[in-house]
Amino acid sequence: MSVRGIRGAITVETNERQQILDASVQLMNAIVEVNGIAPEDIACVYITVTQDIDAAFPAKSIRELEGWEYVPLMCSVEIPVKGSLEKCIRFMVLVNTDLKQADMRHVYLGGAEALRPDLSRAR
């Protein structure tokens, strides 16, 4: 068994608490679904947000999902790069699996599809 990384990202329209929480759950559910994983398969999740998102911690909504109370989650702020995508939440999900890295399915939703159109189309 190996630890593999799964990337994901989603954008929100506004810096509002409920939008941030809902988008975080939507992204996590999509990653879990397309990869056929369960919370107990996940070693940890790193979550970053762009500097224009500060109304809520994305991890809060995930911690409240059934079965997620023991999954380590950490939020931080993305480095500010001029011209980068705004209002974006990014995940790096580290999963214990027997699959190869090439078999991991990354998920980009909303405006975040522009980050990796090659992987967004693969879904």
Score class of each variant (00 low, 15 high):
residue 43 A to K: 11
residue 15 N to W: 05
residue 111 G to M: 08
residue 35 N to A: 12
residue 67 G to R: 04
residue 12 V to E: 06
residue 15 N to K: 09
residue 98 D to T: 15
residue 106 H to C: 03
residue 58 P to S: 03
residue 104 M to G: 08
residue 21 L to Y: 07
residue 53 I to G: 06
residue 50 T to F: 03
residue 70 Y to S: 13
residue 76 S to A: 11
residue 36 G to C: 08
residue 60 K to L: 13
residue 123 R to C: 02
residue 80 P to C: 11
residue 40 E to D: 14
residue 64 E to C: 07
residue 76 S to M: 12
residue 109 L to E: 07
residue 14 T to F: 10
residue 117 P to D: 00
residue 30 A to P: 06
residue 110 G to D: 12
residue 1 M to L: 11
residue 6 I to G: 01
residue 58 P to D: 12
residue 116 R to I: 05
residue 72 P to R: 11
residue 55 A to W: 12
residue 60 K to T: 15
residue 81 V to P: 01
residue 3 V to Y: 12
residue 20 I to L: 10
residue 21 L to W: 10
residue 88 C to N: 11
residue 23 A to Q: 11
residue 69 E to H: 10
residue 38 A to P: 00
residue 68 W to T: 11
residue 65 L to M: 15
residue 70 Y to K: 15
residue 15 N to Y: 04
residue 13 E to I: 03
residue 85 L to P: 00
residue 50 T to E: 00
residue 76 S to T: 10
residue 89 I to E: 01
residue 79 I to S: 11
residue 36 G to N: 12
residue 89 I to C: 03
residue 25 V to A: 14
residue 13 E to R: 14
residue 41 D to E: 04
residue 26 Q to P: 00
residue 77 V to R: 14
residue 103 D to H: 10
residue 49 V to I: 12
residue 65 L to N: 05
residue 53 I to K: 05
residue 35 N to I: 15
residue 99 L to R: 09
residue 53 I to T: 11
residue 75 C to R: 00
residue 48 T to S: 15
residue 72 P to L: 09
residue 114 A to S: 10
residue 113 E to F: 06
residue 35 N to M: 10
residue 61 S to G: 13
residue 86 E to I: 02
residue 99 L to D: 03
residue 62 I to Y: 05
residue 120 S to D: 01
residue 8 G to T: 02
residue 75 C to W: 01
residue 44 C to Q: 14
residue 103 D to F: 02
residue 4 R to K: 15
residue 61 S to V: 02
residue 11 T to E: 06
residue 74 M to I: 09
residue 28 M to K: 08
residue 77 V to C: 14
residue 3 V to T: 15
residue 44 C to D: 09
residue 29 N to C: 08
